[in-house]
Design a protein around this nucleic acid. Structure first.
Lengths: 276, 276
DNA sequence: CGTTCATTTGAATCTAGTCAATTCAGGTGG
DNA sequence: CCACCTGAATTGACTAGATTCAAATGAACG
């Protein structure tokens, strides 16, 4: 996990083709941007290192800080009565989290580190003053909330309406696009610190079935795996079969090489029945 | 669908026991509040009536208005390649929607009316000026986004980790609490304009299975149904078996009559296997 | 080099889906 | 006022995608 390149945020808005100003969908911050955001008001910000597999936020508590994740991977999750864990979302380098713990009386979810990494805490005792006092931050938080809702919507569809084969495909594409946006991909390959158990908990599947599904995807030559990295071999096929549109992740779709096999698509979709 | 009582929003914040100011979790607006929000800047707001089963927003388009739903029920949804529809969320009286269509280049979901009702449109061409120009509105939108993310998170867990029996229970409780907050419940009863198909599309189930599950809930004396209304017979049992915590819907839990049967809970959970 | 955690694979079982037909309820028109 | 029509709710029989339980293999680490 190397530190992301300086991506910054374009909260100022930027004129698009039609001359209309739009807010760019980049809810990613890094240490520098973070400083900028709070220039003149940066008191109280602390940066800390955290080891892997440590709970940063705990479900039910109240918090007075929002967090910026600089370079690690984290997961927002919740444990249910039956002991199963549902991962709501993965938090990648540059993302803000912990807003809910500030807004609500109690945090709805816990957040745990998947890798070690560095975090910054931004005091939020200003709560309903943040709008007056720090417009930049307010906008960043606003974007962060909207972005989060968009991703959760997609995750909901994953769990509710897609087969295991489609869900895994969709997750891998989502991670690929989110990572490529912050320059953490190399060609069509990216390193992924997730265990199959984490993937299962994110998709509402069992590790056993995730394992079988990954094997199926490899056999179908849609992805390749090695050590802790994934290579997307057929972006188009994966997109089509999993209804992936990256518009919800921000900008217009990247143009990627075209390796569609429309004829085979239906067959691939039925692949679910051959996962064994 | 009668118009909701004047609930207003407490965006100003209100001192809690400890004297700390908090924003109250009421993302509900009505016509009056709506006017207030925009006092002095209310130009451009239009109010219209819409008939039932009409698309208000369409997936893929860009919009320049946010909407306030005064008295109807709507559903945010998306259609997948295989033709199935996933309902992301129900929009109840008093809720704001359409933010995404403004923030993103294209709306991620469509919104359709379930009942007829009245809507107001608030022009949003102010986009990144809304923060400077209209703090009240900015805060309302902010809350709306955070609230939405909270609900989606719960819906994700529904679809991913709960059995049909638990999902239906959870949805009914969620609706009950959200409706009671805006005085649209009567004792433990509320009227519900949803068909079993809508419920199925919201929970990622089939109508057939929703039907069987509702029957099971009735047989277990947890709910009662009549015409288009539902009565919660055993709030506690339903809460426990579906991991329901209404904290995500805002204020502290209402104290409701205590009819727990902890001994029977495990049995009820296993009810899933008897749904036939 | 043994311990621990993650990945794999098999076999049996089950929840929810699919297909199809029937019943019920509300609204319409003659 | 009642037959008719249509959409919604029900119910049955069968199937399938995913889970569960169990065990074996691999890989990382002190």
């Amino acid at each position: 996990m190397s530190a992301p390149k300086k991506t910054g945020v374009s909260l100022q808005g930027q004129a698009d083709a039609s001359g209309r100003r739009v807010i760019l969908p980049l809810p990613y911050l890094d240490a520098l941007t973070c400083e900028n955001l709070l220039s003149g008001d940066a008191r109280g910000i602390k940066t800390l290192k955290v080891r892997k597999n440590k709970d940063v936020l705990i479900n039910g508590n109240h918090y007075d800080c929002v967090y910026v994740n600089h370079d690690g991977w984290l997961a927002r999750y919740k444990i249910l009565h039956n002991g199963s864990r549902q991962i709501i979302d993965f938090i990648l380098p540059g993302q803000v989290f912990g807003l809910q713990g500030c807004l609500f009386q109690r945090a709805l979810y816990s957040v745990v580190t998947i890798t070690e990494g560095t975090l910054s805490t931004i005091p939020f005792d200003m709560v309903d003053h943040v709008f007056e006092r720090n417009l930049m931050l307010a906008k960043a938080l606003f974007w962060s909330a909207a972005y989060e809702a968009a991703i959760l919507g997609e995750h909901l569809i994953d769990a509710a309406r897609r087969s295991a084969y489609e869900r895994v495909s969709h997750l891998l594409l989502e991670l690929f696009v989110r990572l490529s946006r912050i320059q953490l991909t190399n060609e069509m390959t990216f390193s992924i610190p997730l265990t199959q158990e984490l993937i299962a908990d994110a998709l509402g599947l069992t590790t056993v079935h995730v394992n079988r599904t990954l094997r199926a995807l490899r056999e179908d030559k849609l992805i390749a795996m090695s050590a802790h990295s994934i290579t997307i071999l057929d972006f188009e096929a994966l997109s089509l079969l999993s209804d992936f549109e990256n518009s919800y992740l921000g900008e217009a779709a990247r143009t990627l090489r075209d390796t569609v096999h429309p004829a085979n698509l239906d067959e691939l979709r039925k692949r679910r029945s051959r996962v064994r």
